[in-house]
Every structure is written in C-alpha cells, then in structure tokens.
Design a protein around this nucleic acid. Structure first.
Lengths: 136, 136
DNA sequence: TCCTAATTGACAATGATTCTCAATAAACAT
DNA sequence: ATGTTTATTGAGAATCATTGTCAATTAGGA
C-alpha cells in the first residue's frame, strides 16, 4: 500500500518542506505559487509529481475539495485517520475513532460489501475563525 | 438550502429520468452518453445544468469520485445520509447512523469547531461483483 | 394565441492535471 | 574523484471535466 520513495532531489525536498509549513490542506497550484514567491525555482509538473509520490509513500494525505481540486497535507500520524478541517483558514486536525471504523465495517458487511475503505471528513469553522467572524 | 426547480423542459425530464434509471452514481459525461445512445438529442452543457439544478433542489446527491469527477445520483431519502458504493459497478446503498453523527459533532466540539458538516462515503465491492470476480 | 424571459446547444474558454521529450543530475560502481 | 546509467526535471502541449457565451428556441402566463 506504501510505495518506497525514489531518488531524493532538491525539488522533492522543497515540496516536502513547503508542505509541512502549511497549517492545513493545500492545493498543488497553491504550493507551487508559494514556492515560487519564496524564491524557489521549480516546475508546476514537478510539484504535482512530488506530491503524488509523497502521497503514494504515505507521507501525505489527499482529499478532494468540494470544488474538485485535490488537496494535500503533510501527514504526521501514519495509518488510517480522518480530518477536521476549517473551511475558512484550512486548519486541520487529525482525528480517529474506533467506533466509526467498526460501524463502517458492519454497515458494509450487512449489505454484502467486501474490500471496503472509507472517506470521512468533517468541515466546520475553527474557534479562531468563529471569533474573528463574530467580532467583525 | 433547497432552491425551487425552474421551468420544466423536455431536457430536464430526460436527465431526471435517466438519472433514476442508473443503479448508482453516474457522471455527467456518462449520463450524456447514455442519453445520446438511447436516441435522445441533448447538449452536454444542458446535462450539466440540469444536474446542478436537481442537486440544488435536493433531488440529487453529489459526491467527488477519487479521480476528481463529480458524480450524481437520484436521491430517495431526503435529508442527511451517507453512501455505500461499489467501486466496480457503482451500485449504491444509502446508510445512516446516529452513532456516527454524534461522534462527528463531539469530535468537532472538542476541538472548538462549530457550524460543522461532514462527508462520509464507504467504497467497496458489492456481493455480485465479488462473485463474478472470483469466478473469473 | 402572443409575449417575454428562461432555456437550449454548439463551441469557445477555463482550470486542474497529466504527458512528452530533450536536457540535467542522483546514485552507484570504478 | 570520475564516469556511467537511469530517474528526474521543466516548459509547453495535450487532455479532461466543467462552465461561459450568445444567438435561436420555447415554456408558461397574460
């Protein structure tokens, strides 16, 4: 399930570091823009390749934004987990729950499904954003 | 949250009927292809418009496929629910669970999040597809 | 039936992502 | 350290889903 990393290049290091500097999920386009404006020189296609490789190696999480972009995030917890994402600032908290895992498997089994995986992401407003919003 | 439907045209009826004929989620492109091959004449852009209108009216569910397409499905249960989706044939079962809802709200509250919503979809292999796969 | 504004459809435009391919640079062996 | 091999890079073209444009059409009410 986790492909090994290939060669380590300057560009992959840059993408990886930039990803870890982000507070939450970021798009490939956004990361590329951030890298370029901080003086790096790297091609957009290379950013996409590096991100996909990180994701394949299990070092980054991916999810589809409601608008259809693929978002990436440096991933601290290895293994299965879910996300709590602020829709205002992108802040992300990793969460997990045995209860949900069990329920998902049970629901699948009851309907004859096998080889199941699931996606669970919670979108909301983090405390900071809620505050700055009410005081506006 | 639910916009009313606008005018009822031949095209919207066709899209709606075609959507209900599908066993599970279908892409706009796929629905358009199905309509055309069954003799209908309808523009691709119109299919997109009709699907978005159905979704806005709460008559269709949408979700983002892992490959980034938007998928649509005629929606029987009104209100909040989740999906169990066969990744082979697209068969979809609507499921729901109080336990998961409660957990999602609790996890959000514990981290200071408000105004939360969530996405939960389970992908797997339905019984029929699992059978036809092992006998191949 | 007649009017008018919403809707359609063909195609252009957009936006994200992937592909192509010649030039470059890791990693390994000498 | 140097050369060899082969993955990787980057610029732009290509692709794919989706949305915008706008003249021609049509649903629905007067």
């Amino acid at each position: 399930m986790s492909e090994p990393l290939k060669r380590m290049t300057r560009q992959k290091v840059q993408v990886r570091d930039s990803l870890e500097r982000q507070p939450g999920f970021a798009s490939a386009q956004g990361l590329h823009a951030a890298l370029m404006s901080s003086g790096a020189t790297i091609g957009l296609a290379t950013v996409y390749r590096a991100l996909n490789e990180l994701a394949a190696a299990g070092l980054a999480d991916t999810l589809q934004s409601p608008s259809g972009e693929t978002l990436f995030r440096g991933c601290s917890t290895t293994g299965h987990h879910h996300h709590l994402i602020c829709r205002e600032c992108g802040l992300t908290v990793e969460v997990h729950s045995e209860i949900v895992e069990e329920w998902a498997h049970k629901a699948a089994a009851e309907n004859g499904f096998t080889a199941v995986g699931h996606v669970l992401d919670i979108f909301g407003l983090c405390g900071t954003c809620a505050d700055s919003r009410s005081s506006r």
